[in-house]
Design a protein around this nucleic acid. Structure first.
Lengths: 346, 346
DNA sequence: TGACGGCCTTGGATCGATCAAGGGGGTGCC
DNA sequence: GGCACCCCCTTGATCGATCCAAGGCCGTCA
């Protein structure tokens, strides 16, 4: 009993099923299924005929039915936290898009769910229990974040964007960007421009990411025989903290350049320069981190370390596929190199 | 035959099913199903017992099975396009988060899929055919975008963020922000501050959104008996175009304030002011549109029209629910009022 | 005693795709 | 000729929740 057929390009109210295709092509359901999933099993002429019918009817396998039978969903869960207001941290936007693209390539889609700081694993738990997603991508792996450990314990497949800084025991797969290398790039760039008194404005000591980035500055300075005493500051990641830190450093240590742990802090530095009538790039050089929109559209373009988020997404998806196909994972972590987007501020 | 039980807080390899819960609670499957979907049908004590068992086993209905039977997915499809590099348009990020939150409230999740300018309806088509999503949210409803019309023709449920500017025939549901009202706010704000020569820098004439915003400026100026001749400019939405337009306007018409169709253009204006040693806010006032991160972290905070994206998301979800429950939709369109985020630049 | 309503059970079918096993026809080999 | 075997395809069962229809039990009320 043929159900309905496509009229023009308008989709029928109930889409055709595998059985519809089978009947119309004069083959069995299984054959149609194979045509879709294991084309090699069919004789070429049969395959062609089935494909033709599939095209005619505009058939596409029902996701729910397939998911039920195969116990997979082709969905990747991602907790979506928006950029904080008042900061320049815009990495999420670009990363999510890269992830969506990379996932699509291999037949996955990205499912977003909200985060809740009260109950950080709540969203994960629900999706896992209802087998709504095949795996997760975890992005906020900062100190003390329980998600990675919890997911590991649940034996839930996931890949982290970010190293397990604080946890030696962590055995999960991760992809990260070498922030220290990025800052080394930035610092060396400034040294190449002739700067010798290069200041660091970073985050508080309890941020391993911040300390890592700071180490890049420290190493490069020392490797070039430059002094770092009195040239470092650790503050909150907000604009006015960056501005204050810059003011103090300028007064006390006369740096000619600033390397910052974030674009947000760099904006603070630029603020101070503005107030003091110092020209960014000519009087004082400034480098930020993340290559945010702010860095890009600022009147004096802000030189900034740019994370290869497209590559991060590709690596993450690659790792996810390996995990989900139960392959032996050869490497637990992948570390990618950032680049430096050079603009007028340096 | 009880399958497996939770050990500690670790999830079993195969999650419990409805039948498992039924057996353990000593009731029938139907009763468990009712406990989940129609609690009113159960006696309070039975309900309590079943709920207890559900909690003990950590049961959550298998999504795929439910989706298959009910022909729904509780998923909302959203084509995710990233912010363009080199612009300040960061609305997507905030909007997506709001949408995720609002959806969660009513039991929906957001599914992202990539866009393809070559084949703008491709992603929609696939998801629709495979019944992977219940509905779509369409965000880029600019002139000539075929998605809304195509989805309408397919009888696919969707709600648009953005009015159907060019299509009188469009009968779909939409939610939008009154850009003209936002610019009226901005213009009036400047007038209240004593400005009389207020310039407009907007987009090219073929952008209905741009023309709408422009009308807000025009109306407010005229309503206050102020001249607008020589005070308007229409350019591409990139920073340097804004800068050039500002330079020309300053030379030719001596405005004391600028209202811009975007934060990107406003950044251009600020660039020109910087070059000319004019202080934003004191010498010349500037107002942008979108309250992007750029506006927020710029050393001289940029006054900007802020879209109520949280409310937009809530309205969209409300409309979606109405659509999906086949209720009669009382209003085809909802127009929300933006606010003005006032900062130092004005 | 019988009718009735509230609450739950029972058995089955169903959604649409995939899995596992099996069948028919042709070829090759003894 | 007969048997094994492979290729290509078919058949029936299955995934887990929901829907449906029918019926049972128990207490209440006429």
């Amino acid at each position: 009993m043929g159900r309905n057929e496509r009229v023009g390009s308008q989709l029928p109210v109930t889409p055709p099923t595998l059985a519809d295709v089978a009947e119309r092509a004069g083959v069995s359901r299984q054959t149609v299924s194979n045509a879709v999933n294991n084309p090699d099993l069919l004789r070429p002429d049969t395959l062609e005929r089935v494909r033709q019918t599939i095209a005619e009817l505009g058939y596409s396998p029902n996701r729910a039915a397939r998911n039920l039978r195969t116990r997979t969903s082709s969905l990747i869960g991602l907790r979506f936290a928006p950029a904080q207001e008042g900061t320049a941290n815009a990495a999420m936007d670009r990363f999510v898009h890269s992830l969506v693209e990379a996932s699509e390539e291999v037949g996955y889609h990205v499912l977003l769910f909200p985060g809740d700081d009260e109950d950080p694993v709540g969203g994960y738990d629900n999706l896992l229990r209802s087998t709504a997603v095949d795996a997760f991508v975890v992005t906020d792996t900062y100190l003390g974040n329980p998600q990675a450990a919890w997911l590991s314990q649940q034996r839930a497949p996931f890949v982290a964007f970010g190293r397990p800084w604080d946890d030696e025991e962590a055995r999960h797969v991760w992809v990260d960007v070498d922030g220290a290398a990025g800052i080394r790039l930035a610092t060396q760039h400034l040294i190449d421009r002739g700067h010798t008194r290069i200041a660091w404005i970073g985050w508080r000591k309890d941020s391993p990411i911040g300390e890592d980035r700071r180490s890049g500055w420290l190493q490069t300075m020392h490797a070039n025989g430059l002094s770092t005493t009195g040239l470092a500051s650790r503050v909150e990641d907000v604009v006015h903290s960056g501005a204050e830190a810059a003011a103090v450093l300028l007064d006390e240590s006369q740096p000619t350049a600033f390397v910052c742990a974030s674009d947000t802090l760099a904006m603070g530095v630029l603020h101070t320069l503005w107030i003091r009538q110092l020209a960014p790039g000519t009087d004082i050089a400034v480098v930020g981190f993340d290559d945010s929109q702010v860095a890009q559209v600022f009147p004096v373009g802000l030189t900034s370390v740019r994370q290869p988020l497209e590559d991060v997404a590709v690596e993450i998806v690659k790792a996810l596929r390996a995990l989900l196909s139960h392959q032996v994972v050869e490497e637990r972590g992948v570390l990618l190199e950032p680049t430096l987007a050079i603009r007028e501020s340096s």
